[in-house]
Design a protein around this nucleic acid. Sequence first.
DNA 1: CGGATTTGCGGGTATATACACGCGTTATGG
DNA 2: CCATAACGCGTGTATATACCCGCAAATCCG
Lengths: 132, 132
Amino acid sequence: MVNQCYCIALRAAARKATSIYDTALEPTGVNIAQFSLLRSIKRATAVSLTELGRVTDLDRSTVGRNVKVLERMGLVRVAAGSDQREATVTLDDAGHDVLRFGAPLWAGAQRKIEASLSPATAAHLLASLQSL
Amino acid sequence: MVNQCYCIALRAAARKATSIYDTALEPTGVNIAQFSLLRSIKRATAVSLTELGRVTDLDRSTVGRNVKVLERMGLVRVAAGSDQREATVTLDDAGHDVLRFGAPLWAGAQRKIEASLSPATAAHLLASLQSL
DNA sequence: CGGATTTGCGGGTATATACACGCGTTATGG
DNA sequence: CCATAACGCGTGTATATACCCGCAAATCCG
């Protein structure tokens, strides 16, 4: 039952991978999208939503809503920047904890994916995805 | 910047591909998810939502809601099957039209993806995605 | 300096997606 | 046959995602 459509195959693979990572990260209380967003926030340290959207390649409004969930969870803090328009996001202590706690769980999910493909194929896959 | 997480890379690639296909299919009035769902419905001819969920690898409730949109658009028809529990979906004339009209547009999006990768790489990508 | 433009956000709207719950229908066993 | 289990759905709830609109702040120019 081969699906010839790249897009549908990608969407299905993304759903499946999401499920695997979400399950692995379940003990952390956040899903893979949130975990990754937390990592982006940590990496950037006090970013605006627009900038966060740029680095995650997501729509600004999407980032804003996703950040709001993390804020409600007490994992990040949102404050106005020097530019009064900007809403700068910073990782809270609980957010750091989640990242630390989740790191090995994430790695486990990574290994699970790599188990489905040869190491070379996995690397090739990442490269292909990023050159799209 | 290279993303080491298979899941995030997959999700990003899926979003990007979705955007490409959605743009290509815009004249049809349906997006790639709907286009693909229409194709699945056509292929199956009078399927239950559960069966449709199985072939598309989507949650039944997701399929139900997506089908409802197509029904509202007048592209598919939902009726009770011989089994009174089942909601069988069939393609309407307008649905067939959309598939016919959209086929070359979809093919154009496929070519666009293939232009980003070598033909061998594209084939390899599909295989990798499906073995996940 | 003040109007025009740009920039950054929030919120409205819509689809996609999954999981859990509850209801009605069908199938199964005793 | 009827009680019970299994099945198929719809709906509630929640997140993810994007596009558009409008407001407010910052920047640009004449």
